[in-house]
Design a protein around this nucleic acid. Structure first.
Lengths: 351, 351
DNA sequence: AACGCCATGGCAACCGGTTCCCAAGGGGGA
DNA sequence: TCCCCCTTGGGAACCGGTTGCCATGGCGTT
């Protein structure tokens, strides 16, 4: 028994070679499958492989340049339904294209993100996909730009998925969905039902996803000749509790509104519960709309009118464009459309 | 310019060494940090590292035995809320313990699972965590046993998380939650409200998670001296649509029941919508309970009475026991408890 | 001033594979 | 029967790191 074969049972290609009475190169060739090897040799080698339960070390193969490529995926929190769907799209497409898929959640910690990207550069990941909105500050742009350059110089690629783009010249692939357009269409639908005082439950003020949806809210008002009341634009975050709290407080201060547009379905869910708790009927007393079209939206009562975002498609596209990128078309920027899903939570305004 | 340094900008440790005028070993030692190196040499090396934007290849380090350990995580579909929470727990704990986290979704395809596990063996993953219930057939046990042995022989470890255990002797770590106990407590609560005809919306008949919950349903009846009507035990899957369809059909056939217990909250959500569509009040006409306590449960209307399962804790525990395993205590089997969360969807039976 | 120790850094082996290049041997055609 | 080609398989270099071992040289000590 050799030294290696007693080490936790992991056997090397040389162990196999010794057992089959051939050289390591021959074993490699049998396993590779392309190089011509005589039937008897092949049989002996395969038998030794089975006897030792041998599998070639993937890391060693990677060093030699024939490994399975890897792709990394960074998000804030995988338990959010829309994040989960993007993750699903990414994972599916990565698998379809023969890539392994590393995942990292940051829980909002910027330093985690930077560290992880650096680690992925060391791993020689084919691409790193950053998912989810962010504050679009100068610091954000510089930091992200550094990550992009660093990955690019290592032959890898940064993909921004639903994240603020970096301006021209950055070696980045950007896939966004149209937050402003979706919110515009949704709010236009609400206004068309006669509502004039529409409460907007937004996210963090500097978060670009929240900003886009807020812009759509404002633009829809102006397009209809309604000047939006700044007091009706509230800020929280994208959690269920935020929606719940915002509505409870708004009702407590006797803020007047006949409809609520939430920046996400999660927020809408909390808002709905708060409205119910206050004894209000939806949509009889107050209309409510969400954003994201998470699967649960149609099981709320009333079923939630919302904006459908093709999250899974987004994830798939991120992978496809990142990996299928051609040298002559290096920097892609895609904007995916959304559409309003009309259900039962928005009704005519009480006159 | 050397051959390497023009290759996509990736520079090797030898490039750095040449630029700093030292040998590769010195560069390695400077970066390693433990070996004593003179200040001037260190400065020159670090400068060369910065100039070339060098990062040591993680795969090469791994081959040399000093890489970042990796852990793999296999589930059917990450978009399910309970799966997502387990994934979150796994990822957090893996990160805390300094492990990278590979993820694979199988979409129910057994062959994918087998192939992926084999791939993880090649990757020398520290552990592979299989998540989610499964049919507990002989084929399942043999297949899973093979995976466990194969991983164990490679110094790795198979973890079954919410999956049927394999019986004694298998090199496996098992973390389960108490499906039967949770369902028992939940159904006992429903029966205590006076309900006698409780519809059970189960999963696939051979799926162990579904079976456990069904057993709890039956046991709670018997404990109360109520003989459960077999016609009230329905089978579908764990999707929202399944719950919706099952209730619609049950109502169409004029099945009599005063309460519904769904095998998951997703199923309960679909069921709730179907009940509403039929004009039934919950819990006035029919009581409803779920299982899993997903975040949305409290935003359903009425807020869903359900069983809380510590999914995130489960994921964390799976990682911790798999990695922290000691040689003298190799095979752990943990059973996590659950508890009923009483909300508003279960009321007294109409007499 | 000589000696010895320790700080420093290079050489080479090793991790576990792949693949280029070449040698040997067998079989078929002339 | 001889020669040539093609099939087959081995040796060694390489991928990009780490680390054991050893040589060197500067310093302090006696």
């Amino acid at each position: 028994m050799t030294r290696k074969s007693e080490d936790a049972g992991r056997s090397t290609i040389r162990d196999v070679a010794a057992r089959a009475g051939v050289s390591a190169s021959t074993v490699s060739r049998v396993l590779g499958g392309v190089y011509p090897v005589s039937a008897s040799t092949r049989t002996r080698v395969l038998r030794a492989v089975r006897d030792l339960d041998y599998v070639a070390d993937a890391r060693a193969k990677a060093v030699a340049g024939v490994g399975t490529p890897t792709l990394a995926f960074v998000l804030e929190d995988i338990t959010g339904p829309s994040f989960a769907h993007m993750a699903h799209g990414v994972e599916r497409e990565a698998r379809r294209l023969g890539h392994l898929c590393l995942v990292c959640t940051t829980e909002g910690d910027v330093q985690h993100e930077v560290d992880f990207v650096e680690m992925m550069r060391a791993q020689r990941a084919a691409a790193v996909i950053l998912v989810g909105g962010s504050a679009d500050t100068l610091e954000y742009r510089e930091r992200t730009r550094r990550m992009a350059d660093s990955l690019a110089s290592a032959g890898s690629r940064l993909v921004l998925c639903g994240r603020p783009p970096l301006g021209p010249g950055a070696p980045v692939t950007v896939i966004e969905y149209d937050n402003e357009g979706g919110a515009y269409a949704l709010v236009a639908h609400v206004l068309a039902q006669g509502h004039r005082r529409v409460l907007f439950l937004g996210g963090k003020p500097d978060h670009t996803t929240a900003q886009g949806r807020e812009r759509g809210y404002l633009a829809a008002h102006r397009a209809r000749g309604v000047e939006p009341d700044p007091a009706l634009v509230l800020h929280g975050d994208f959690t269920r509790d935020s929606g719940h709290r915002l509505i409870r407080d708004a009702l407590k201060q006797r803020l007047e509104f006949t409809a609520v547009v939430a920046a996400t379905d999660m927020v809408a869910a909390g808002a709905l519960t708060a409205l119910h708790e206050a004894g209000l009927d939806v949509p009889g007393d107050v209309s409510l709309a969400g954003y994201d079209d998470i699967p649960f939206a149609r099981d709320l009562h009333p079923a939630l009118t919302t904006v459908h975002v093709p999250y899974e498609e987004l994830g798939r596209l991120a992978v496809r464009t990142a990996l299928g990128r051609t040298p002559e078309n290096p920097d892609e920027h895609l904007l995916l459309g959304t559409h309003v899903v009309v259900r039962n939570s928005v009704g005519p305004a009480k006159s």
